[in-house]
């Protein structure tokens, strides 16, 4: 039996009141309800306050470069598809610095769970705009307000027919833990964009701001209907939908490599008989 305690309790570097605490709790609950033991899981993260999260979990961790968590995770998954690989990092890391990898991971439909802490601001570097910051948001780096339109990760993922697209909110832990469990059980690339306040640097999109707007999708909502998912994905402003917005059963990336159907690459023998035949072709 896996318990919450198995995933440990650590002192963190986060500000009091940060949404990260609730997300960390929900992640632990998702892992436990998925009956995943700490050694079966690999967390990969990038750089940012969110990217520190795996350090506060008692599990396997690779904490790499800013924006590059997905490639590291993809390489690890291809080497050992038996690992449950989860990427956890922030909006800047995944949608800004790592934007190309986000698109590529969706296209591949590699079996990874991507948890994005989305607070619409850069916390670690103290309050610059993030790719999801709203237009006009004033920061020290954008004194005239953010001039670019915000990136809509849900809409992009749905448009690309990512196989699992969900949104959660750090203020609704039970709901988020449920989403995480579903995402971890999903075979293929699963995105969960998690809205969260940044108590230190985002004075607009506060806990109350999200609380007022977030609503959970009704039971009759059909996440397999791509057209309605596209519409739902575009909803933002007064009402923000939470839940599984879109899902499908695309073939996973790993399934397309014939060599991986015989098990992980790790520990596999090198067939010198075969190599000899290959070398004979050069004669």
């Amino acid at each position: 039996m896996v318990t919450i305690e198995d995933y440990g309790k650590y002192e963190t570097a986060w500000c009091p009141g940060c949404g990260n605490f609730s997300i960390l709790d929900a992640v632990k609950r998702g892992l436990v309800t998925s009956e995943l033991e700490p050694h079966q899981v690999l967390f990969v993260s990038g750089i940012g306050q969110a990217a520190k999260a795996p350090h506060y979990l008692n599990t396997n961790v690779f904490n790499g470069l800013h924006g590059r968590a997905l490639p590291v995770a993809s390489g690890a998954k291809l080497a050992n598809p038996n690992l449950k690989v989860i990427v956890e990092s922030g909006d800047g890391c995944n949608y800004g610095e790592g934007g190309n990898h986000f698109l590529a991971a969706i296209r591949r439909n590699i079996d990874l769970t991507l948890i994005v802490h989305d607070n619409q601001i850069y916390g670690l570097t103290k309050g610059q705009a993030s790719p999801t910051s709203e237009e006009g948001l004033i920061t020290k780096a954008q004194p005239e307000g953010v001039a670019s339109a915000p990136f809509n990760p849900i809409a992009v993922a749905v448009a690309m027919q990512a196989s699992f697209v969900a949104r959660g909110f750090s203020g609704m832990i039970d709901h988020l833990a449920g989403l995480l469990k579903e995402a971890m059980a999903h075979e293929g690339f699963a995105l969960i964009d998690v809205l969260q306040p940044c108590v230190s640097f985002n004075k607009v999109n506060t806990f109350a701001w999200y609380k007022k707007r977030c609503y959970t999708l009704p039971d009759e909502y059909d996440p397999t209907d791509w057209r309605s998912a596209m519409q739902t994905a575009m909803e933002w402003g007064d009402k923000i939908p939470l839940g599984i917005i879109y899902r499908n059963q695309r073939t996973t990336f790993e399934k397309r490599f014939s060599v991986l159907q015989q098990g992980p690459l790790i520990g596999r023998d090198t067939d010198f008989g075969e190599l000899k035949k290959i070398l004979e072709k050069f004669a």
């Binding site: 997905l70 490639p71 590291v72 080497a79 690459l265 090198t270 067939d271 075969e274």
Partner: peptide
């Protein structure tokens, strides 16, 4: 790749390429 049991992946860019290799190597190959 099929005969020798390896995965060759054309990455989305060189940054992904090296980070994938680091991930694969960390996992053990």
């Amino acid at each position: 790749a099929g005969r020798m049991g390896l995965v060759v992946e054309q990455a989305e860019d060189e940054i992904a390429a090296i980070n994938m290799a680091i991930g694969a190597s960390f996992a053990g190959v």
